[in-house]
């Protein structure tokens, strides 16, 4: 199982995808908590309006993040990190 994961991650594009999925999961969970608290526990109209603003902003920023992700040359980033790790290795 571990070998399969390492084989999967040896492809630079898959590292980027794995990073995106982990970040998306974290942001989704965090955003869900904020949205849920506004709607469930908010008193009056203000919390609902803020929840809507937050949701629209989160959708907009998600789209920008996805577009930015597409423009990253993951092969170059992966190679640069590997080269940097070779430099810092003590021997």
């Amino acid at each position: 199982m571990l070998n399969e994961i390492l084989n999967y991650l040896s492809n630079p594009h898959n590292i980027g995808l794995a990073l995106l999925i982990v970040m998306a999961a974290v942001f989704l969970l965090y955003g869900f908590f904020i949205f849920y608290h506004f709607i469930r526990f908010g008193v009056g109209g203000k919390p609902k309006i803020l929840a809507l603003v937050f949701f629209i902003g989160a959708c907009f920023l998600s789209a920008i993040t996805l577009v930015a992700y597409q423009k990253v040359d993951w092969a170059y980033v992966y190679q640069a990190i590997k080269d940097a790790l070779h430099v810092v290795k003590p021997y």
């Binding site: 942001f27 955003g31 904020i34 989160a58 920023l61 920008i64 930015a68 990253v72 040359d73």
Partner: peptide
């Protein structure tokens, strides 16, 4: 990569 990092950074700030 810098643009992607900036997008993630602003998303964090928004949250």
């Amino acid at each position: 990569a810098l643009c992607f990092a900036a997008a993630v950074y602003y998303f964090l700030l928004w949250d």
